[in-house]
Design a protein around this nucleic acid. Structure first.
Lengths: 139, 139
DNA sequence: ACAAAAAGATACAAAAATAGTATCATAATA
DNA sequence: TATTATGATACTATTTTTGTATCTTTTTGT
């Protein structure tokens, strides 16, 4: 049972890295070096994030990726939905079809409740909150 | 992302069925009929539950299965641990080895917190609580 | 003793999800 | 127009989940 797949994990780490660095854009190659993950896999993930609208990309020399919105605005659920969508703890599927017991399933209601809370908590985690290492005492 | 696999789902339904019926024991064949699931798969699940200590079994004519403890004492986590163990939202594994970032992973702490709460909630769900259809007003 | 009815053990197989590779096309820019 | 970057897409490998198949053992009634 994994809440977070490697796709999502890599994506989050890449987003953090992109958010943290000073240059305008950062290339896939440079990300591979700092993140130590398979280049083709990361490239695919970056492409997916771009298509999903979380990243800008520019081609050619000095091209690369940058965030489209601030790190505060990117939640963990945003990323999870891209790679693992939809977020359901409860699938209630039976060979592509709805489970025949879905209407009177006694487990479903209980799991649904837990699911709501999990999603709320995941939504509270943003790229910004992941990056922030310590609470700033001056704030 | 599934919190509960079919193994666990079938097992829970079987346990409910065993808990609810009046006879001392119930055979795999009778369970198959009332639960409508593949016989060999259910048999394997029943065997696993027996090995795990949740069921008693008796062979031969009029043999079958019964609970070893009361439905109140069987939690959802008990069953999940048998079929999906261990319950972790966060695996932090990288090709069988610990993820190299495990010590300073900023996501881990946050997910671990969520995990604790999820597990606590799953622990509160028992076979008895699943069976109980309505709150008894006389209580 | 022995046949029938049950569970036990175990090995195998199919399907789905996850993880990753490889290759060629396209665009920007010096 | 060569180089350096991403875009698109098809393919492959691995792991997990979901089953199936087959044979053995035990119990019980006759």
């Amino acid at each position: 049972m994994k809440l977070i797949t490697r796709n999502t994990d890599y994506a989050v780490r890449a987003l953090c890295c992109i958010a943290e660095q000073k240059q305008e854009v950062i290339s896939a190659d440079r990300l591979v070096k700092s993140l130590d993950m398979p280049r083709p896999f990361l490239r695919k993930i970056l492409q997916t994030l771009t298509k999903a609208g979380l990243l800008n990309s520019s081609k050619g020399k000095d091209g690369g990726f940058s965030l489209t919105v601030s790190p505060e605005e990117i939640t963990l659920t945003d990323v999870m939905e891209i790679f693992q969508a939809p977020i359901r703890l409860n699938e209630c599927k039976f060979k592509k079809n709805d489970c025949p017991y879905i209407s009177d399933c006694l487990l479903k209601g209980k799991i649904d409740e837990i699911e709501k809370e999990v999603i709320a908590k995941l939504k509270a985690i943003t790229i910004a909150s992941i990056i922030k290492k310590e609470v700033n005492v001056d704030d």
